[in-house]
Simulated assay, not measured.
Amino acid sequence: MTERIVVVGAALFDGGRLLAARRSAPPELAGRWELPGGKVEEGETPEVALARELREELGVAAEVVERVPGEWPLKPPYVLQVWSARLPPGSAAPRPLQDHDELRWLTPGEIWHVDWLDQDVPAVRETLTRVPGAR
């Protein structure tokens, strides 16, 4: 049996809005939206991996807060786990540095205005239960 590989995603919140990132690569994913993040490397905890990925992909030092319950299958052997995160006061605005060409802060009413990657949809639904003011 192949060991599973964890991919971490960030439910990055700011003022009740959720950050969505539009993929620029690979070609089969380009133009679709996802929660930013990436693979957990050997020797990393998921929380450390997520903080690293947000630095690399968005240029931000986000605070990882708590795991969103659930785990969602991606292309085998990958699985997606999501953590809520926030930007410390006075942080620079996130910007697309790697693998993305656009970022959007979405209010709960705008969440479904973007074309999410199919595998991110269940995770996004679960994160909506954690958006401040979205209940």
Results as ranks from 00 to 15, higher is better:
residue 1 M to R: 13
residue 4 R to L: 14
residue 6 V to N: 06
residue 6 V to F: 05
residue 8 V to D: 01
residue 8 V to G: 01
residue 10 A to G: 04
residue 11 A to R: 09
residue 12 L to R: 01
residue 12 L to Q: 02
residue 14 D to M: 13
residue 15 G to K: 08
residue 15 G to H: 11
residue 16 G to P: 03
residue 16 G to C: 07
residue 16 G to T: 04
residue 17 R to L: 05
residue 20 A to F: 12
residue 21 A to K: 11
residue 22 R to K: 11
residue 24 S to W: 00
residue 24 S to I: 02
residue 25 A to R: 15
residue 26 P to V: 08
residue 26 P to A: 03
residue 29 L to P: 11
residue 29 L to S: 13
residue 31 G to K: 04
residue 32 R to L: 14
residue 32 R to C: 08
residue 32 R to H: 12
residue 34 E to G: 05
residue 36 P to W: 03
residue 36 P to I: 02
residue 37 G to V: 05
residue 37 G to H: 07
residue 38 G to D: 04
residue 39 K to P: 12
residue 39 K to L: 15
residue 41 E to T: 10
residue 42 E to M: 01
residue 42 E to A: 15
residue 43 G to C: 04
residue 44 E to C: 03
residue 45 T to V: 05
residue 46 P to R: 03
residue 47 E to K: 10
residue 47 E to M: 10
residue 47 E to D: 05
residue 48 V to C: 01
residue 48 V to D: 14
residue 49 A to P: 10
residue 49 A to G: 04
residue 49 A to K: 09
residue 49 A to M: 07
residue 51 A to S: 14
residue 51 A to N: 02
residue 52 R to L: 06
residue 53 E to F: 03
residue 54 L to E: 02
residue 54 L to M: 14
residue 55 R to G: 12
residue 55 R to P: 07
residue 57 E to N: 13
residue 58 L to A: 06
residue 60 V to R: 09
residue 60 V to W: 01
residue 61 A to I: 00
residue 62 A to Q: 10
residue 63 E to Y: 02
residue 63 E to P: 00
residue 65 V to D: 14
residue 66 E to L: 08
residue 66 E to N: 08
residue 69 P to Q: 09
residue 70 G to L: 01
residue 70 G to S: 05
residue 71 E to N: 02
residue 71 E to T: 13
residue 71 E to I: 11
residue 72 W to Q: 04
residue 72 W to T: 03
residue 72 W to R: 01
residue 73 P to N: 10
residue 74 L to G: 02
residue 74 L to M: 13
residue 75 K to Y: 15
residue 75 K to R: 15
residue 75 K to G: 00
residue 76 P to M: 08
residue 77 P to S: 06
residue 77 P to L: 09
residue 78 Y to I: 00
residue 78 Y to D: 08
residue 79 V to P: 03
residue 80 L to S: 02
residue 80 L to E: 03
residue 81 Q to D: 00
residue 82 V to G: 01
residue 83 W to R: 00
residue 83 W to T: 02
residue 83 W to E: 01
residue 85 A to E: 04
residue 86 R to Y: 03
residue 87 L to S: 10
residue 89 P to E: 08
residue 89 P to G: 03
residue 92 A to N: 05
residue 92 A to E: 14
residue 92 A to L: 13
residue 93 A to K: 12
residue 94 P to V: 07
residue 94 P to R: 04
residue 96 P to C: 06
residue 97 L to R: 08
residue 98 Q to K: 15
residue 98 Q to Y: 02
residue 100 H to D: 12
residue 103 L to V: 06
residue 105 W to E: 05
residue 105 W to C: 06
residue 105 W to Y: 06
residue 106 L to F: 04
residue 107 T to G: 15
residue 107 T to Y: 11
residue 110 E to T: 09
residue 113 H to L: 14
residue 114 V to H: 01
residue 115 D to M: 02
residue 116 W to H: 08
residue 116 W to M: 12
residue 117 L to A: 12
residue 118 D to W: 14
residue 119 Q to C: 13
residue 119 Q to L: 14
residue 119 Q to S: 15
residue 119 Q to R: 15
residue 123 A to N: 01
residue 124 V to T: 04
residue 124 V to P: 07
residue 125 R to S: 11
residue 129 T to Q: 15
residue 129 T to D: 14
residue 131 V to K: 00
residue 131 V to A: 10
residue 133 G to E: 07
residue 134 A to I: 04
residue 135 R to V: 07
residue 135 R to P: 07
